[in-house]
Amino acid sequence: MSRSTIRNVAVIVAHPDDETLWAGGTLLSHPLWKCYIICTCRQSDTERASKFNKAVEIFKSKGFMGDLDDGPGQTPVEEKEVQRVILELLPKRHYDLIISHNPSGEYTRHLRHEEVGKAVIKLWQTGRISANELWSFAYQDGNKTYYPRAVGKATIYNALAKKTWLRKYSLIHDVYGFDKNSWEAETTPKAEAFWKFIDPNDAKRWLDHLTI
């Protein structure tokens, strides 16, 4: 569907700031979208939660947070638990568009990103999330040889206007409070890319291929 006809959007991410790093420019560029931003981790982290809520306010969206384990050891979380948290947080309705993590992640590597990306595809493919389209983040870091960058050959690739990127960077630096020399600030992509799916079965086949 045309971006001009998209209205109801679900953004489903693992952490506060993921919505900004990987899709912030896209959200800022579509002020008419009615966005529901779901963050599956860090609800009990009052500092991060407060910053997330401020970012959501700037995006003129609604935000919902969960508390999946997010310890430094990255202990795997069962797929059913990730799905349960997503379904518990996400308002039950039909969405024009879902935006979420790549099942392979955006960089090397964070397990929660991968788990959320896989869970979203399976929930969509089995009809437990209703949506017309899925956009999966399309970034790569060359196995840590460079900061994550948008994949040029992705279905959707948008070089951000300077003004839009500066607003996005301000969210990372001023709202989330990351120092200019931090990984997050250095990463903040100046282009955003997504793999687009309109058939959930195609997305599931893609997922199966990635996990072979």
Rank of each mutant, 00 (worst) to 15 (best):
M1G: 14
R3A: 02
S4L: 07
T5C: 03
R7L: 12
I12N: 05
H15C: 10
E19Q: 10
E19K: 09
T20N: 06
T20F: 06
L21F: 04
W22I: 13
W22L: 14
G24A: 10
G25S: 05
G25P: 12
G25T: 05
L27K: 07
S29F: 10
H30E: 09
L32F: 12
L32G: 12
L32N: 15
K34V: 11
C35V: 12
Y36Q: 11
I38T: 09
R48N: 04
S50M: 14
K51W: 08
V56I: 15
I58C: 13
K62L: 12
G63Y: 13
F64C: 04
L68T: 08
L68V: 11
D69C: 07
D70V: 08
G71D: 15
V77T: 14
V82W: 02
L87M: 10
E88A: 04
E88Y: 04
Y95V: 05
D96V: 05
L97E: 10
I98S: 02
N102A: 12
S104G: 10
G105I: 02
E106Y: 01
R109L: 01
H110N: 11
V116N: 06
Q125F: 01
T126C: 05
T126P: 00
G127L: 09
R128F: 10
I129S: 06
I129E: 04
A131R: 05
N132A: 07
E133C: 07
F137N: 09
F137G: 03
A138G: 06
A138L: 05
A138H: 02
Y139C: 00
D141F: 01
D141G: 01
K144R: 14
G152C: 01
K153F: 04
A154E: 10
A154N: 04
T155M: 03
T155G: 12
Y157G: 01
W165S: 03
W165Y: 15
L166S: 09
L166K: 14
R167P: 00
S170Y: 12
V175G: 05
F178Y: 15
S182Y: 07
W183T: 11
T187Q: 05
A191F: 08
A191Y: 08
E192R: 14
K196Y: 14
F197K: 00
I198E: 14
P200N: 09
N201R: 14
D202H: 11
R205L: 11
